[in-house]
Design a protein around this nucleic acid. Structure first.
Ligand SMILES: [Mn+2]
Ligand SMILES: [Mn+2]
Ligand SMILES: [Mn+2]
Ligand SMILES: [Mn+2]
Lengths: 120, 120
DNA sequence: TAGATAAATTAGCCGTGTCTAACTTTTGAA
DNA sequence: TTCAAAAGTTAGACACGGCTAATTTATCTA
């Protein structure tokens, strides 16, 4: 959970300037109270900073985690695409797969990606 | 959860002749009461048949699900191995990845597997 | 600037999956 | 054949992630 949240929060801050619960709820297909509760957990975990009724900010730890997650996400998607999978499926599957890919496997994906690029 | 359980139950029946809660608990690194409760849910879902204090059997539906899961598991592991990932990591990662692989992606894995075999 | 609307929170519920402690049933050895 | 050890179950607790209904706060608009 935490990974998907910080990832989305980072993206919202980048694209919208701020991360709002209502956006998060829409993106995850979840109701606002669920977001409120989960954001509290993120705050308790030191990943997020925020005051009630205000936008959500990432802590340093949160930003670091977000960056790692976004990188992993990009690699997994790119890898699936390189296998000829359509974009929609690649995105959907990557959203789950990304949470189970070890460093070893991620590196193997990157390596395979390079091969497929050189081999056209 | 159900997928991992029926998969393991099928394997235990095949290798040991029967599936016992104590073995399931060990394999999943979980305590026996957890297994009891989860097996009850499997029974409620019509995947498993059993009487208290006796071994666990799969229903037809359970057996079908188990077969599908084992097939997916084998393909994901084989695919990761074909990328040069070590067996331990491949098994560990596959255990999570298998639950997020769509039919489309599974087919892409199979296809890539064939390519890697022909290309030696 | 008042009032309506939108956004967010709180309270309380539920199902899942985990645990420990205590109990019951089965089993296997003496 | 008995009875101790192993296996399994029950009871009760907890954290997580989801929900609805009701309330509170912020925002926009007339
Ligand atoms: Mn994800
Ligand atoms: Mn992601
Ligand atoms: Mn699994
Ligand atoms: Mn598996």
């Amino acid at each position: 959970m935490a990974e998907d949240y910080v990832e989305l929060i980072a993206e919202l801050i980048e694209s919208r300037g701020e991360a709002r619960p209502v956006e998060i709820a829409e993106r995850f297909g979840v109701k606002p109270p669920t977001v409120t509760k989960n954001i509290s957990r993120l705050k308790a975990a030191g990943l997020v900073r925020r005051e009630p009724y205000r936008a959500i900010f990432l802590t340093d730890a949160g930003r670091e985690l977000a960056e790692a997650c976004r990188r992993r996400h990009r690699i997994v998607v790119a890898f699936l695409l390189s296998l000829g999978i359509d974009e929609e499926t690649a995105e959907r599957d990557a959203e789950g797969i990304e949470h189970h890919v070890s460093t070893t496997t991620l590196e193997a994906f990157e390596h395979a990606l390079l091969q497929s690029q050189s081999g056209k």
